[in-house]
Amino acid sequence: MKKLLTSMSLTGLLIMAIGFTSCKGKLKDADIKTAIEAALKADPMAAGTMVEVKDGVATLTGECKDEMCKNLCAEIAGKVKGVKSVVNNCSVAPPPAAPVINPEDDVLTKALTDALKDHAGMGFAVKEGKIVLTGEIAKAKWAMLKQTLDKLKSKGYDLTGLTIK
C-alpha cells in the first residue's frame, strides 16, 4: 500500500514536473491566441479583428474602420503576454461615399431647359428636386435623354405622365 502511494505520488510529481517545464518554456500559441482574442473583444473598436498565432508571432487580419483602429489592434495584441511580435494585416475600410449633391431647383430647371430644347411636345417641371416629365417621346430618344438627365443629379424622377412610343 505504502509502495503504491509512493509510486502514485511519484507519478503525480512527474506529471506536474512535465506540466511545469512546458509552462516554463513558453506559452502555447493557442493560449496566446485566446488571450489576444479576449483582449481585442474587450475593445469595441478592435472587436471583429481576427488573429492567428504561430511561434509567438501574432498575425492580425480583418477590416478596421480607419488607420487609428488598425494601430490600436496591433497595440492591444502586442501587450498580450507571450506575443513576440505582431504582423498587422488588417485592411482599412474605404471611407464612406460622399452624399450626392443635388442641385437647387432653379439650377436644375435651367439645365432641363437646355436638355429638352429639342424635344418639342414634352413638358417638364422641377418639384422638390425631382424632375417631372410629361408627354410622349420615342424610345431611342428617351434612352439618350435619360443619360443626359442623369448627369444633372436630381432627386429622382416623376415619370407618371410620360409615354414611351
Partner: peptide, 20 residues
C-alpha cells in the same frame, strides 16, 4: 449597363435610379 438598366426597369420609368 444601360441595357441591363432597361431590362430591370423597362423604359427607365420608375425614376428611382440616377446612373451617371
Amino acid at each position: 449597363l444601360w441595357a441591363v438598366y432597361d431590362k430591370l426597369d423597362p423604359n427607365f420609368l420608375s425614376g428611382d435610379l440616377v446612373m451617371n
